[in-house]
Each structure stands twice: as C-alpha cells, then as structure tokens.
Nucleic acid binder design. Structure first.
Lengths: 247, 247
DNA sequence: CAGTGGTCTAGACCACGAA
DNA sequence: TCGTGGTCTAGACCACTGT
C-alpha cells in the first residue's frame, strides 16, 4: 500500500482530475474560484491551492492571475524525430502547428561559441521559434546559425512563417553529423511564462548540433518541449556491423 | 525585469543555494532544523519549507522525515549514449556504478505486451536494475525480456552484478533496430522514493525497444534518469544519402 | 471598484526516526 | 520520549484583471 488515507490535497486533486477527464468540467472552462472550491471541499485556501498545484504540474490546469483557474485544452502530442533531415524533424503532426519566428543577430555567448565551435563574440543569427496550437503556445526552439550561413530573407523579423527549418536546410551543405543531447529539467522562469506552463512541469531540452561534410558546425538548436505534449524518438539501424541509420 | 523584489522563499533559497555551492554548508551535512532556519530568516515555517522545496526540486537538498534536511552529495553526471550496443550504452562514467539487480518473471501487462509485440499475459522476465553511486541511488532501469531469451543464471535474484546488459547482449541474435523514445516527466511516487528524489525533480524517461534481425523484439527497457544527473546523447552520421550510424 | 489569484503568518496536530 | 519533518488551518495583506 502506498497511502492508507491520501492527503487532502491529493484527494481533491484526484476528484478534480476525474471531473476534468470525464468532461464534467470542459476543456477551456474556468474552475470555480479558489475560495469557492475551498469551502466546497471544506479545506483552507492553502490546502486547496496545493491541490491545484498538483494539477498544474501535470499540465491539466492553467492559472491566470486575476482571472482564475482554467482547464487546459488538450494539446496534441508531438513526436520529435531525431537524426532526420531538418525538414522532417517534426512528424506525427496531422497538420503543422502555427509558428512565429523572430530573428536577431547576436554575439555568441560562451556556451553557444563552444557548441558551434567558433570563437566567442562571433556574430550569430538567432531564430526564436514559438509554435502554437490554436492560441496555446506549444513549444519553443532557439536556433543559432553563423551569420554568413543565415538565409537573409529571414533575418529581418518576418513575423511567422512555416517551416524555416526547411529553408535553412536548402542553404546548408550536406550534413554529415547530427548530435542531439537530451535532458530533462524544469523550465526556466522565462520559458515557463513564454510557454504558459507551470514551472513544475518537466520539459525535454534537446540541444542539437549539426555539422556539414567539412566538420563545420552549421547549426545549433536548443529545443524546449514540455513533457506533457512531446516525446522524442531516435531509431538506429545496424546492419551486421553498425551502419545504416534512418531518422 | 522578472522580479523587482524576489519573494521571500526565493531569497532564502538563493541564500542557501549560495552557501551550498560555496561549500559553507558541506555536502552530506545536515541543515539546521526547519524551525531554526525559520527563526533565523524571520519567516514562518511554511515559507521556509517553500524555500527548501525549491532546493529539493533542484536536487540540492534531500529531506528525510524525522531526521532533517541534508545537502545532497553531488552525483556524477552520466551520459546515456543512445543507439549503441547494449554493452556500451553507458559511458562517460569513470568507473562503473554499483548496480543491484533483481529478476522476476511476470505476465506482460498491456503496455509491455504492446512494446514487445507479444500477446498479453505472455511470461516475461523483468530485471530491475538500480545503480548506486556510493550509498546514493543514481538511476533506475527496468528491462523486460521474453522468458525464453532471458539468461537463466540471472533469473533467480542474484543480488548485484555488474553489467547484466553485457550478458544479455551475448545471448541475443544480432540487433538490427533500436528505437528509443525519450520523454520528460516527474517521477512516480514509487520512483521518487526508490531513487530518493523529490517528486518535483524532472526525470528523463527512455523507453528502448531492440529488435533482432528477424524483427523480433528481444528487449524492452524503461530507463528512469533523474534530470539533475543524466543526459542522453544521440549521434547520427549521414554519408551522402542517409546511412552510417554510430552510437 | 470588485473579484481573482499570490504570498505570508502563527500557530495546531500528526507521523517518523533515534535513543 | 524527544526532536524532526508532514499536513493543515483561518485569516491577513498584496497584486493583477476586468468593469
């Protein structure tokens, strides 16, 4: 046995979770106010808030200060496919998400310089890509490219355009190595507010470095995929002695 | 600006975090009791506990009921290398961690049956591998193998033995496909207590499915790697038109 | 302005661990 | 038993959102 009598907050969270998953409280709808819920469940406000915190960490509820607690609309679960060409790195999406992209030129910070194998303070073009499903931010990518490789028609802040990556890929020499480092962490405060997620929701952080045939790093990307709506899959094919790969 | 004046709990967490990272509070040491800390910082107990919760979620502090709060010994950061042969899937470790393994035969649950491509209720051998760095649990793996493929000398609960996977690999026909699905989530309560981590610390969950040359799934594994001490890296080599792979 | 969530207080009582 | 953390209360005050 795990809990002979679950704590109050878990009992309340379970009850609300049930009401949400059975549709008794519809997606997008506002929950009763915290004080109403507290008196309904006969608990104090902190206890009720703890219960809601559980649901927030699960990505089921979104709090908006001054407005209330809202049942999050179920976001499509995406699968990031690793190692593929950039153009098909996202699949499993019935239709592509809407993406906003902003591009700026920045000086490489130490960490970026190390990733790209350039000296610090080199000028890079940074693409910040925010994908949306409806009005809801879905996931976030920051892509860094040496300025001389960046497509110039994207560098001046075109607001939202589909599939930049496709265009980037056209311009790159053939890639020979893609290295993807995957970690799990909680979002930074900025990421949490950008993606409108609880800072307790785990995110998948993928750092992707792509090099061309000369070994030059042509792209580094930091992808932030909230764990409640994305997985990454990596497939390796070995034919007898370790070759053959399909993204 | 993000926070003009950080909340009390963040200020306290920052102060304690500083004391920990500068070594003013040594690794493994016990913090003053919560009531002492609360009076020291002139806050109430819940506020102080909120501050500690932040440090727990970062994996810096471990609470032990009835004993106190302890500064976690810094665990080695491991890199799981994807796609490789099973035998070298862990690398970056100076010396291998100590691993306890227990093996039991179970009936496949629906999810496992689907993973392994067998019918439900098929008998599987489950290996539960818990790796330790010193006395500290590091990470957790559950490996499922059809019973007829399981090495019999491991199925009767040999307590801890290094590198089961090596032995498993010897017995398997050549693998042609490894598919690794990576997600980020918070640990289940059981995982949190097994690994002695906060249930707010993000973990990397890797589901690995390996198939032999005939397409038979010979192994499914669920790895749980706490995000504060592990990454996974996947490297893909393309030679002109998409082949070549190295784990 | 009224209503909402955000933060904090000063306690109470329970459960666990070690002696 | 005692000291520890675990949970909860009842209420205060602040900050944000809408009218």
């Amino acid at each position: 046995m795990i809990q002979p009598v679950a704590s109050r907050r878990h009992a309340i969270a379970d009850d609300l979770r049930n009401q949400i998953s059975t549709g008794r409280i519809a997606a997008g709808e506002r929950l009763p106010s915290e004080s109403e819920l507290a008196s309904h469940y006969k608990v104090s406000t902190p206890t009720l808030r703890n219960a809601l915190a559980i649901l927030q960490a699960e990505g089921l509820v979104e709090k908006i200060h001054g407005k209330g607690n809202f049942v999050r609309r179920r976001l499509r679960r995406l699968t990031y496919v690793g190692g593929g060409r950039l153009t098909d790195a996202w699949s499993g999406a019935e239709e592509p998400l809407r993406v906003t992209i902003s591009a700026t030129n920045i000086k490489a910070r130490r960490d970026l310089a190390a990733l790209l194998g350039v000296s610090a303070r080199t000028t890079l073009t940074e693409f910040v890509c925010l994908s949306y499903e409806g009005n809801q931010p879905h996931s976030l990518a920051r892509i860094y490219v040496p300025r001389d490789l960046a497509p110039t028609d994207l560098t001046d802040g075109a607001p939202w355009r589909e599939r930049v990556e496709e265009r980037l890929a056209e311009l790159c020499p053939p890639l020979v190595e893609i290295r993807e480092t995957v970690g799990a962490r909680c979002p930074t405060p900025e990421e949490a507010s950008t993606l409108r997620i609880s800072s307790a929701l785990a995110v998948l952080a993928i750092t992707r470095v792509a090099a061309d045939i000369a070994g030059r790093v042509v792209e580094a990307a930091v992808l932030v995929l909230p764990g409640d709506r994305a997985d990454a899959v990596f497939t390796t094919h070995h034919t007898t002695e370790g070759k053959g790969k399909e993204g």
